[in-house]
Design a protein around this nucleic acid. Structure first.
Length: 288
DNA sequence: ATGGCATATCCTATATGA
């Protein structure tokens, strides 16, 4: 089972590229961010034609998230991040697909910082951490993926120099990402490729794609129940090189769910993994 | 400190993104 996350940067103008990628890579599940479209403008018919059922949560002009699943309807669990009823941004969807809980999130960018947008980012992140704690120990296999708008360490960017003041690299942002990982989550790309410079975003300026000057900001996190199924992880970077591409590339994990059937299936009675003294240490550690 | 580019909308301009 291949599950991907892809910030499409406008689903209406990106639809041809999206369909091309789905056709070529055939992900079983695709979590999309930045639809930048109202619910009524979501291209449900075209995606159905391509074999994908969908849940979506749109918004005029900005934000917007969706979960696509090949051949099956994703079963909606929730369509907002708990903790602030006044938050009207469309940034979160959660669904069950083939026994896996899939969370699709679009964490606020937070620029410029400091300022109200950065405050909103940190508050949203705190709410995510709170909710993620419950998901982690739910007893179900969980994948929490999306555009986190966090460059976790300086190793996850081509050169941090000109990005030092950016919201994506701030210590407060990184500390929260580490706190999230401290719950025990596995960052799939970094776990399987500890030494590799892996990027998921290349901005439209200064020929950053051509120079491979990228950032790793799209992440897929697995809880302990799902971790045994992790087979591979990567980035479909070719998508970024297409004409009329999003500035993000699809990022994915390949799961072998059969690995979960041997006594580790999602059962509500399963004891939550009470692990991760190591994770807490990592959270306290300063990133280089 | 700004801009480079791209998308969307209240479109000879402005907001947002990262």
């Amino acid at each position: 089972m291949k599950i991907a996350t892809y910030n499409v940067n406008g689903i209406k103008s990106r639809l041809p590229r999206l369909l091309e990628w789905l056709e070529r890579e055939q992900p079983d599940v695709a979590c999309l961010q930045e639809l930048k479209a109202l619910d009524a403008s979501f291209p449900q018919a075209e995606l159905k034609q391509a074999g994908y059922h969908a849940l979506w949560k749109g918004q005029r002009s900005w934000n917007g998230v969706a979960i696509l699943a090949k051949g099956v309807q994703p079963v909606e669990i929730r369509r907002e991040l708990p903790g602030d009823p006044s938050d009207d941004h469309s940034r979160y969807l959660e669904a069950a697909i083939d026994g896996v809980v899939v969370a699709c999130l679009y964490l606020p960018n937070g620029n410029p910082q400091p300022g109200p947008k950065f405050d909103y980012k940190l508050a949203w992140f705190d709410r995510l951490i709170e909710h993620a704690g419950g998901l982690y120990s739910s007893g179900h296999p969980v994948l929490m993926c999306g555009d986190y708008n966090v460059v976790p360490t300086d190793f996850d960017i081509y050169d941090p120099k000109s990005w030092r003041k950016d919201a994506l690299l701030q210590p407060q942002t990184r500390e929260r990402y580490q706190r999230l990982l401290g719950q025990g989550w596995i960052d799939a790309i970094r776990h399987l490729h500890p030494e590799a410079a892996v990027y998921t975003f290349w901005d439209y300026f200064r020929q950053h794609w051509q120079r491979n000057a990228g950032l790793r900001i799209d992440h897929l996190l697995l809880n302990a129940e799902l971790a045994p199924a992790l087979k591979a992880a990567g980035v479909d970077a070719w998508v970024r090189g297409q004409e009329g591409a999003s500035d993000h590339a699809p990022t994915w994990v390949e799961l072998d769910l059969k690995k979960l059937k041997s006594g580790k299936t999602a059962s509500a009675t399963r004891e939550p993994a009470a692990k991760k003294a190591a994770g807490k240490k990592a959270a306290a550690k300063k990133s280089v």
